[in-house]
């Protein structure tokens, strides 16, 4: 099993004729994902690697029946509308790839998604993958590269960085630890689904035995995760890697992702590490320590 997506998940790509979207469509198809249609206004009737293109989401749903997911890869100015369109046409799992979307618009998408009982992953993310089942989004790149880095197994991965999702998976795979599902959750200050919001899904997935996360300065997401683990007495051991320790002394400077900025004490890596360790999360100094830490924690269970 896995969370969020499996080889049976049917999804569409909004903005499918864009440069990045074309790549992503091919990579996802090659990996075995079921993309039933794509949307680009004014381009109905074309196809992208055999995937039919429609003018709007409603037309895809009319032609193919209810669809579970959508990958949104449209320019920032059009993203909110595209997400609203997916939500109002009954799509309940939306991966937003686009970056540079102002917080107000992200908050609006998330609020409508909550009202509709839907989930947004991202924005500014590479999507997710259940290895050897399917992937949704650019995570891992071309299918051959993806197969090299990701293997099926029992570790759930969550990462604020798309690239580091693959670095961690690749390190786990090399150490003989496969993954259940890996989610690139996005690097913005407001995102659709945080670590803590994914935890109940992993917790309920019998195939997931432990969690590895990649984390950065900025925001309250790690504190929220720590709280969730303590409040819910989670069965899952968690190992975290914290990047950007140098930023603790660099108040107000933005590095990396939009959400990566130290504005107050709670944003620092020192504070986050303290909170996570207090909640029983093992914090790795280096990526390559993650497999051994996971094994150790799994033995203790």
């Amino acid at each position: 099993m896995s969370i969020l997506i499996s080889k049976d998940t049917r999804f569409i790509v909004q903005g499918i004729t864009g440069r990045e979207a074309v790549n992503l469509t091919r990579e996802n198809l090659d990996y075995g994902s079921k993309i039933v249609g794509g949307v680009t206004p004014g381009r109905a009737g074309r196809d992208v690697y055999g995937v039919p293109v429609y003018d709007c989401v409603r037309d895809v749903v009319e032609a193919h029946g209810q669809i579970e997911g959508s990958v949104v890869s449209v320019p920032p100015r059009f993203t909110k509308d595209a997400v609203f369109e997916a939500l109002e046409n009954g799509i309940r799992l939306i991966v937003v790839v686009t970056e540079n979307i102002p917080r107000r618009e992200v908050a609006q998408m998330v609020e409508l998604a909550n009202l509709r009982g839907a989930r947004i992953i991202g924005p500014n993310c590479l999507g997710m993958i259940s290895p050897e089942e399917a992937k949704m989004g650019g995570v891992g790149g071309p299918a051959a590269n993806t197969r090299q880095a990701y293997a099926k197994g029992h570790i759930g991965v969550m990462s604020r960085s798309g690239g580091m999702t693959t670095e961690i998976a690749s390190t786990l795979t090399a150490a003989g630890l496969g993954q259940s599902t890996c989610v690139s959750i996005g690097g913005d200050a407001i995102i659709g689904t945080t670590y803590a919001e994914l935890m109940p899904l992993f917790e309920a997935d019998s195939e997931t035995h432990a969690i590895a996360i990649y984390s950065e300065p900025g925001g309250r997401m790690e504190a929220e995760l720590a709280e969730w683990i303590q409040t819910n007495n989670s069965r899952l051991p968690v190992v975290a890697f914290m990047a950007g320790r140098f930023m603790d002394e660099m108040q107000g400077m933005r590095f990396g992702h939009a959400g990566t900025i130290v504005e107050g004490k709670e944003d620092t890596t020192a504070e986050k590490i303290k909170r996570m360790e207090a909640a029983g999360i093992s914090v790795a100094e280096r990526i390559e320590e993650i497999p051994a830490l996971l094994r150790k924690r799994l033995e203790e269970v």
């Binding site: 690239g163 690097g187 950007g244 140098f246 590095f255 990396g256 992702h257 990566t260």
Partner: peptide, 24 residues
């Protein structure tokens, strides 16, 4: 996203998360 520091080792690094990890 170039930020100047006063050391002597030039860094051509990426991407967002990777740069933070490598700088550390």
């Amino acid at each position: 996203n170039v930020v100047e520091f006063d050391g002597n080792l030039g860094l051509v690094i990426g991407a967002g998360g990777g740069s933070l990890t490598l700088f550390d």
